[in-house]
Write a protein that binds this DNA or RNA. Structure first.
Length: 432
RNA sequence: UCCUCGGUAGCUCAAUUGGCAGAGCGCGCGGCUGUUAACCGCGAUGUUCUAGGUCCGAGUCCUAGCCGAGGAGCCA
């Protein structure tokens, strides 16, 4: 009996008889010969069936195969220059597992609405397959870099009693009769964890109930948040640029084939190496005034067009640091030389993809944090444990959060984050 | 939440001034020994988003609603 192998391993089995199992991506009938394109998740191979080489019942059986029918095919693997990928399976026998009728996604064009309604099937398409493979590699790079650089994974709760930052809209759920909220960040818990472990990260789903309807927003997205004790703003930017560069280079090294499928021009990614340019918020405002936004006022937040102008001024991702204190979360440390700005920084991805990282140095000062909680009208009782961290061995510390889907969208140069995750959750969309 | 555009065959779209509902793909049947979104011939396929209205006549015009896309704000 022929061994069952994966398509990714065909090169090692050239000249031998093997069995492949998977789905029919496409079939072409030439009369006395047929071409099948078989995919099994690990790859795609062309199979060829000659009428003169197989029993009539086998030739008739392959004739019935429709797009996405599931099969086990046994044949001889051989190198074949005319076949896509350079290898071909000369079919000897076919076991039909199931005939698929009227598969909705044909090899022609489809609209976004139709594809999203059939997301559970769309995932089988080459482009979506490639994106998911790239995403998995990005996540592995994230974990590898942090694990190899002394960060301990400590995941933070998803069910939380109160808003972490008190700003964004949260999903409310019922927790034994009391309201609870789906986490929008693990950061405050990270700050507790670093006092035990020094350097930590959490990596999990994050939920925002904002009514955002853009190509950059999901209501459920994945975020990795490193945080460490005794870190400063400059330390954070040093770490983040190493981290992001490692992620990008890992994808270029291990997912070149996928980048080709999605037609990503990787030349710009190849240049992503430290150091990244760093520009203060105030200098960024001056830049905007020169580049088409003469009326931009210091203290305003950047919108999408502003971020695009700033990031397109550099060929690397760019840090914008020292934002106005009032614009950022209550826990950001003030700049000692100018308390109007805080020790925060966002990383704007190259090629106009916008913010992929937000972070900064956290205030270690108990009195200041207490006043900030009051100023932001947050319920002090919910933050007593957080304030404890400033009573018992408070230290300067920093951290950041990287949005996985936006990072994937940038690296893969996608039009919309909905293609970066298998089943995107968006404004008023939760099917399938 | 606001602004703009759209909804016609399974899919992608067309339909002139308001005048017989169309094409390509896919599907069915037939042909073809090297196809790469194959090609050639034949064939079937409609609640024109919904509910009202104007009109001899509405896919087309009017009113309301539903759904989708793009953008804004906010964010990762």
């Amino acid at each position: 009996m022929a061994p069952h192998i994966l398509i990714q391993d065909i090169a090692a089995h050239t000249g031998t008889e093997v069995t492949l199992q998977g789905w029919i991506a496409d079939r072409t009938d030439k009369g006395k010969l047929q071409f099948l394109r078989l995919r099994d998740g690990s790859g795609v191979i062309q199979a060829v069936v000659f009428q003169k080489d197989v029993p009539p019942e086998t030739f008739d059986a392959t004739r019935t195969l429709t797009q996405e029918s599931s099969v086990r095919i046994t044949g001889i693997l051989r190198a074949e220059a005319r076949a896509p990928g350079g290898f071909e399976l000369a079919v000897k026998s076919v076991e039909v597992v199931q005939i698929a009728l009227d598969y909705p996604i044909t090899p022609k064009e489809h609209g976004v609405e139709f594809l999203m309604e059939h997301r559970h099937l769309w995932l089988r398409s080459p482009r979506q397959h490639a994106i998911l493979r790239a995403c998995a590699r990005i996540i592995k790079a994230i974990r590898d870099w942090l694990d190899n650089n002394g960060y301990t994974l400590v995941d933070t709760p998803i069910l939380t009693p109160a808003a972490v930052e008190g700003t964004t809209t949260l999903f409310e759920t019922d927790y034994f009769g009391a309201p609870a909220y789906l986490a929008q960040s693990g950061q405050l818990y990270n700050e507790a964890n670093i006092m035990a472990l020094g350097k930590v990260y959490c990596f999990g789903p994050t939920f925002r109930a904002e009514k955002s309807k853009t190509r950059r927003h999901l209501t459920e997205f994945w975020m990795v948040e490193p945080e460490w004790a005794f870190g400063t703003l400059d330390d954070y930017m040093d770490v983040a640029e190493q981290f992001v560069s490692y992620i990008v280079q890992s994808v270029l090294q291990d997912r070149a084939a996928e980048m080709k499928v999605i037609e990503r021009d990787v030349t710009k990614l190849a240049n992503i190496k430290p150091p990244f340019p760093r520009i203060s918020y105030s200098d960024a405002v001056d830049l905007l005034k020169q580049k088409g936004f003469p009326d931009f006022v210091w203290g305003d937040d950047f919108g999408a067009p502003h971020e695009t102008v700033i990031s397109e001024s550099f060929d690397q991702p760019v840090f914008v640091h020292r934002y106005p204190t009032d614009m950022k979360a209550f826990y950001m440390e003030r700049d000692a030389s100018n308390p109007k700005v805080c020790l925060s920084a966002d990383l704007l991805a190259a090629e106009g993809y916008g913010e992929i990282i937000g972070g900064g140095q956290r205030s270690a000062d108990l009195e200041y944090l207490a006043s900030q909680i009051e100023k932001h009208k947050l319920p002090r009782a919910a933050y007593e444990w957080y304030l404890d961290l400033r009573k018992y061995g408070s230290v300067p510390h920093c951290g950041f959060g990287l949005g996985v889907e936006r990072t994937v969208a940038w690296i893969c140069k996608l039009d919309h984050v909905r293609e970066t995750i298998a089943f995107p959750r968006m404004l008023e969309k939760i099917y399938p």
